[in-house]
Design a protein around this nucleic acid. Structure first.
Lengths: 172, 172
DNA sequence: GTAACTGCAAATCCTTTGCACAATG
DNA sequence: CATTGTGCAAAGGATTTGCAGTTAC
């Protein structure tokens, strides 16, 4: 039905593929459980919510609220900006979407693909590279613990210069 | 002269004391070199700049732009909000002040006290604890390097529950 | 049918800018 | 005295909110 159609389209355009166990589990969670996940949180399954998820699923990188709104528009979906903001916040709470503050003043969003990861942001070309490091993760919890702190979540942004930009300028 | 007065007042109210070499060096830098540091960057030594530094020096934690503005007002200094923003940005560039984006939508500022550090934010009481960890620091650069990335700066915020709040609720 | 959702426009919040006047070096 | 800095008010961008109409369950 509509659900299936949606999933096939999303799958066809997907920029990533399930490749290891974590991703596969996550993939199924992502593709199949969305409706239930929404209902579990008392959210009705509506066109705006489903569409926003689709946009984020099909996006390669991170999108800010306005970009999401624009892509919905390009897809012929007239959804108000306010609704986009509301939906993004709700999806974040449900855990389907991850919000990051990569630059002061605005948030960017992406589909949750496994545990929270961190970001490398190139200050020259604005490219964003995802990464995660188990050692940092562990050390982080330890360091916080030594201050009596229990870590629930985190945000790490590394600002610097990516390989491509360094190659261009020949500098660091 | 005026300079000396200012330094004595600042010292009297200071919430921290030089205790190790790094802090001591930093302390002198903080208290004595400010005027020169401003001039070195082509900034004139003006009342707003000096006052903002004093406010931040005497603050225990982090202040947002509006709080800085308010404290200046309480001290009888009528300085425009726009100037506060401008001054904070300039002091950040000079390296006398450190800006952090602990929550989306606004920045907080504090006096630079040594190398950039990270923040633990308690999601229950909003308390902010500074910390830094050499191992995370090193690992971070390494992890980024493996992606061809040279790290210039970073932002790490750990969200969780502080000891005090956990004690109160008896939970994690 | 009712509670939840949406669109629109207006409101809000933080921050920046334009410009005439004022102060520093 | 020339450049840089400041205050004010207005502009700016991102996000939220109030409310009347609409939809999912």
């Amino acid at each position: 039905m509509i659900n299936n159609e949606r999933e096939q389209i999303a799958f066809a355009n997907l920029s990533w593929r399930p490749c290891d166990i974590a991703n596969e589990i996550n993939y199924h969670l992502l593709m199949l459980d969305v409706d239930q996940r929404l209902r579990d949180h008392g959210l009705k399954v509506t066109a705006p919510r489903v569409s926003v998820l689709d946009v984020l699923r099909q996006a390669t990188g991170h999108l800010n609220a306005d970009e999401v709104h624009a892509r919905l528009g390009m897809a012929g979906l007239e959804i108000g900006r306010a609704t986009v903001y509301r939906v993004l916040a709700q999806l974040e709470q449900v855990g389907l979407v991850q919000r990051s503050v990569l630059e002061a003043g605005r948030s960017v969003f992406e589909i949750s693909r496994g545990p929270r990861h961190d970001h490398l942001v190139c200050t020259r070309c604005a490219r964003v590279i995802d990464f995660s490091d188990a050692e940092i993760e562990a050390r982080r919890i330890e360091a916080a613990g030594s201050k009596g702190f229990v870590v629930v979540d985190h945000r790490l942004v590394l600002l610097g210069h990516c390989a491509a930009c360094r190659a261009v300028t020949g500098s660091v």
